[in-house]
Amino acid sequence: MREAAGPYAVAATRCVFGLLFFCHGSAGFFDLPKMPVNGGTTELTAWPAGPAAVIQIVGGALLMLGLGTRTAALVCSGSMAYAYFDVHQPTALWPIQNGGEDAAVFCWSFLLLAFTGPGALSVDGLLRRRGIAGPDRKTSRAAPYPR
């Protein structure tokens, strides 16, 4: 029973973390949803907050859909590693001291998804079942035309 439920647990984790990451980016970029403490919206050209918000919105959406999951998760993990070491870690060593718990949890969760893949109920899985090669799928070495 546990083995059968595993892909669905991975899919639920992927969707939840994707939604949280998407909301994190949209709160910073569009101020939606409204946050009680927010320094205002981020401009696209502001470094590193602008590109980070774009990664959060696009990466979160891709993870929720399960499209390009491994690549999206790896990019999202890297952005959170950068956020942790550039923003949080210089102020104190431990995440509990420097406010970097969210960045650390997102980073490691996305890294795990980069290795496990999308799980069940994903666009990647649908494309794989239909035989359409995606960025996360190895293509077969079949001849391009019959001989």
Score class of each variant (00 low, 15 high):
Asp102Ala: 12
Val37Ser: 13
Cys23Val: 15
Leu126Asp: 09
Gly68Trp: 05
Gly50Lys: 04
Met35Leu: 15
Gly50His: 03
Gly28Pro: 03
Leu111Asn: 11
Leu62Thr: 02
Val87Lys: 05
His88Ser: 06
Thr116Gly: 09
Pro95Lys: 06
Phe85Lys: 10
Gly100Thr: 05
Thr91Cys: 10
His24Ile: 01
Thr41Gly: 11
Leu67Ile: 06
Pro118Thr: 05
Ala120Met: 11
Ser109Lys: 03
Ala5Val: 11
Met80Lys: 04
Thr41Ala: 10
Ala120Cys: 10
Val58Lys: 01
Gly39Trp: 14
Thr41Leu: 04
Tyr84Ser: 09
Thr41Ile: 07
Ala12Lys: 06
Glu43Asp: 13
Phe110Cys: 07
Ala11Glu: 07
Trp94Ser: 10
Ala114Arg: 04
Phe106Ser: 00
Tyr84Gln: 06
Phe30Ser: 05
Val16Asp: 08
Tyr84Asp: 05
Leu62Tyr: 04
Val123Arg: 04
Val75Tyr: 01
Phe17Leu: 12
Cys23Thr: 13
Trp108Pro: 09
Leu63Gly: 01
Gly40His: 06
Cys76Gln: 03
Gln97Ile: 07
Gly40Trp: 10
Pro7Asn: 11
Leu93Lys: 12
Gln89Arg: 14
Phe17Trp: 09
Ala52Tyr: 00
Phe17Met: 14
Cys107Val: 10
Phe17Gln: 01
Glu43Cys: 01
Gly59Pro: 04
Phe17Cys: 01
Ala73Arg: 02
Val10Leu: 15
Asn98Gly: 04
Gln56Ser: 03
Leu32Arg: 08
Thr69Lys: 05
Leu44Ser: 10
Phe110Arg: 00
Leu32Asp: 07
Val54Ile: 15
Val16Pro: 05
Asp102Thr: 13
Leu20Ile: 11
Pro118Ser: 13
Pro118Arg: 02
Trp94Asp: 09
Cys107Ser: 14
Leu113Asp: 02
Phe17Asn: 02
Phe110Glu: 00
Lys34Thr: 14
Gly100Trp: 00
Gly18Met: 07
Asp86Lys: 11
Val10Gly: 02
Trp94Ala: 08
Leu93Ser: 13
Pro95Tyr: 07
Phe30Pro: 03
Val16Gly: 11
Gly119Arg: 02
Leu63Cys: 09
Gln56Phe: 02
Arg2His: 11
Ala114Ser: 15
Leu44Ile: 15
Leu127Ile: 05
Leu93Gly: 09
Gly50Val: 10
Phe30Arg: 07
Tyr84Lys: 03
Pro118Met: 00
Asp102Arg: 12
Ala4Tyr: 12
Gly119Glu: 06
Asp31Asn: 14
Gly50Ile: 07
Ala61Arg: 01
Leu126Gly: 10
